[in-house]
Amino acid sequence: MEPHHWQLTDDLTEFLHLADDFLRSRPALHTVTLTVSEALRTRGPHTHGAEPPRFGVLREPGGPVRATLLHTPPHPVQLTPLDPAEAAALADRLAEAGHPVPGVWAERETAAAFATAWRHRTGMIAEQTVRQRLYRLAELTPPDRTPPGRARVAGAADRELLARWYVEFVADTGGQARQDPAQWVASRLEHGGATLWETPDGTPVSLAGNLPESAGQIRVAPVYTPAALRGHGYAGAVTAEVSGRAAATGAEVLLFTDLANPVSNRLYQRLGYRPVADFATWSFTAPSG
């Protein structure tokens, strides 16, 4: 595999023309690339001063697409599954192009292979920072006990609460916000993609979001309950509500969990979610001195 087999572009339309069939061939494994590229297509990059998005496809001349790259700075590069030789070719290609790579997010083995290749190619320090598991809903099993209250789809009056919880969720999970909170809220409200669990007196206590259907799948994200309100079953109740509604459309229902949080992993398995694959994020930093 040669570095020039990686074709890089800043043109989203060109990328989707080349890669769409490949991405839709394994939509669960490619779910993040599918949903991010769709958001870029419909809403624009929202770069906030960062570099514009960059895309890439791996294919030998005249051959089919074998893998893709999607990078929305300042976030890590997103990769579909690669073998070590393909990862090494990509590291060479990006280094030759002078493309800065703050980190990588991919299926576990792919992320490790690229981190190793990038370290060897550039001398950067590579550190695994997040481990996640992708789950697919098999058959929804509602919680044995549902807490008092009800689920409702969030509306315009919930904008401030949703923005605050989005910021808290990102901080709680150690991630980076992909959108301005107000823009994130607006995008969720326009398709009913935020559901709240509220107590009998109308107080919101938990959130489960969902992305729009893409390639026959709906991804549940995020699920958040403020720390002081956890342990009452609110997250399970609202996640079951959103999962059931998504499954009723006939879509495949997916979600990611942080493997450092065993409580959430047990919760989703009790609801009927089954593991698909593990993913990892690696961060790259220059050596001191």
Score class of each variant (00 low, 15 high):
Ala89Gly: 13
Leu90Asp: 08
Glu38Lys: 02
Asp158Ala: 02
Ala111His: 12
Glu96Thr: 04
Leu162Thr: 06
Thr146Gly: 08
Thr129Tyr: 03
Asp201Asn: 06
Leu207Ile: 07
Asp172Val: 00
His232Pro: 01
Val130Pro: 01
Met1Ser: 09
Glu86Asp: 11
Asp180Gly: 02
His75Asp: 05
Gly56Gln: 11
Val77Tyr: 00
Asp21His: 04
Ala106Met: 09
Ala177Asn: 09
Leu189Glu: 05
His120Val: 15
Arg121Phe: 01
Ala235Lys: 01
Val153Ile: 08
Gln7His: 12
Thr122Arg: 14
Ser243Arg: 04
Pro64Cys: 01
Pro100Ile: 08
Pro84Arg: 12
Pro143Val: 00
Gln176Leu: 10
Pro45Arg: 04
Pro143Arg: 01
Leu134Gln: 15
Trp282Lys: 05
Phe169His: 09
Thr141Val: 12
Leu162Asp: 01
Gly236Arg: 02
Asp158Ser: 02
Asp158Asn: 07
Phe169Tyr: 09
Arg43Asn: 02
Ala277Asp: 15
Asp83Ala: 04
Val220Met: 11
Pro53His: 13
Thr173Asp: 04
Trp282Ala: 05
Pro181Gly: 11
Val77His: 05
Gly231Phe: 12
Met1Glu: 07
Ala39Asp: 15
Leu189Ser: 08
Ala115Phe: 08
His46Arg: 13
Pro74Phe: 01
Phe279Ala: 07
Met1Gln: 11
Ala91Gly: 03
Thr31Tyr: 03
Glu160Pro: 00
Arg108Met: 13
Gly56Leu: 08
Ser187Thr: 11
Val153Lys: 03
Ala237Asn: 01
Ala106Leu: 14
Arg266Phe: 11
Gln132Arg: 13
Asp278Tyr: 11
Ala251Trp: 08
Val130Phe: 14
Asp158Phe: 08
Thr146Trp: 09
Arg230Asp: 07
Arg108Gly: 10
Phe256Leu: 15
Phe169Cys: 03
Phe15Ala: 11
Ala194Gln: 08
Leu18Pro: 00
Thr33His: 15
Gly250Met: 10
Thr281Glu: 15
Tyr166Val: 01
Pro3Phe: 06
Gly272Asn: 10
Glu241Thr: 12
Leu70Pro: 04
Trp184Arg: 10
Leu12Val: 04
Gly250Tyr: 12
Ala89Glu: 00
Leu254Met: 08
Ala95Ile: 02
Phe55Gly: 12
Ala177Phe: 10
Ala87Met: 11
Gly193Trp: 04
Gln269Ser: 05
Tyr234Leu: 03
Thr13Ser: 12
Leu40Pro: 06
Asp11Lys: 10
Val205Pro: 00
Thr281Trp: 07
Gly289Phe: 10
His99Gly: 11
Leu16Pro: 06
Phe55Pro: 05
Thr146Tyr: 08
Thr281Lys: 06
Asp258Gly: 05
Ser264Met: 09
